[in-house]
């Protein structure tokens, strides 16, 4: 570690020999090996305790999902099952099968729509700047922070009047529209970093707006598409509020169906946990496959909820 530091310091050229000697003799470097070791042990201990606290609810939930009702009352909640069973999963799958397919459908469609729209809006707001584009962007951004409770009643009435209450179209429409502010923000911040001269070059090379978008902007933006896509997919998939008021028995999204299944009079915890696990599976899958891009998305100031 020391030599690493030396290298870096030399590279930066910020230190001369005398100062370096001072640094070497300073407190941080003088710690004896034992002290250093104790420090590291405590450090790792704290980190591992934090890991345990993070993991326990998940661990316990997964274990319970593999237990029979009898097993659940016999074993401790954090112990593995005596006889692992898939019964809860089968039960949950039968209950959630249809809603899960529903959710996959509208989530995918709404994700694609809101990403495409966000990409166009981001492009227009950065590369075709016009008077008022900053204000317009601000008005878009406010949409991210909108508490949906404050528009639920008008939304509810509108969806009913459109005759799409309790259908897939309601979910696609609502999620596509309310996804636009977030996707626009993500695409805009990415397109901001594309140099203006590239756009100008394309213009003088004879490309029109559409050609610039299709041949230059789209090929340059696989990353924001992944980031916005993952972000939209997870937040639409996880939505509960819209599902609660805009759907009923006809078109149940998975989130709504899960709460119906779990919210019976006598909670069967093994089934509930198996249900939550099934419900989380698509998002976890995407997270595993595209996780590193999502990190960048989260970094971009993304907000959940």
């Amino acid at each position: 570690m020391n030599s690493h530091k030396v290298n870096q310091i030399e590279k930066l050229g910020v230190v001369d020999d005398i100062k370096w000697e001072k640094l070497r003799k300073s407190k941080g470097f003088k710690l004896s090996k034992v002290k250093r070791l104790i420090k590291r042990v405590i450090l790792y201990a704290v980190l591992i305790v934090a890991v345990l606290i993070t993991i326990i609810p998940l661990w316990s939930g997964i274990m319970s999902a593999f237990k029979t009702q009898a097993d659940l009352s016999l074993t401790s909640p954090i112990a593995p099952p005596l006889i692992p069973t898939l019964e809860p999963f089968i039960y949950a799958w039968l209950e959630l099968q249809r809603p899960l397919i529903n959710s996959v459908l509208f989530t995918t469609i709404a994700t694609v729509i809101s990403c495409l729209l966000g990409s166009v809006c981001g492009f227009v707001l950065t590369k075709l700047k016009f008077k008022g584009s900053k204000t317009l962007f601000m008005l878009f951004t406010i949409g991210i922070f909108l508490p949906y409770q404050s528009i639920l009643v008008p939304l509810f009435i509108t969806i009913r009047n459109l005759g799409i209450y309790d259908t897939m179209w309601a979910m696609i429409l609502v999620h596509s529209v309310y996804g636009i502010p977030m996707t626009t923000l993500l695409f805009r911040s990415y397109y901001d970093s594309i140099p203006e001269s590239l756009i100008n070059a394309a213009k003088t090379d004879g490309a029109g707006v559409m050609a610039i978008y299709r041949r230059l902007i789209i090929p340059l933006s696989p990353l924001p598409f992944v980031v916005a896509g993952v972000f939209q997919f997870t937040s639409i998939w996880n939505d509960y509020l819209f599902a609660l008021i805009l759907t009923g028995a006809n078109f149940e999204p998975a989130s709504f169906a899960l709460s119906n299944m779990a919210g019976g009079t006598e909670t069967a915890w093994n089934n509930t946990m198996a249900g939550t696990f099934l419900y989380s599976l698509p998002v976890l899958l995407i997270f595993v496959l595209l996780g590193k891009y999502l990190m960048q998305g989260l970094m971009a100031g993304a907000i959940k909820g």
Binding site: S197, L198, N200, A201, A202, T204, D205, L216, L220
Partner: peptide, 21 residues
């Protein structure tokens, strides 16, 4: 007239080479 219809060519200070091509 829009730039694409002027039949001009331009070389930029940073060359503006399309990075994905």
């Amino acid at each position: 007239e829009s730039p694409q219809d002027r039949n001009i060519a331009m070389v930029f200070q940073d060359y503006a080479i399309y990075p994905h091509m």
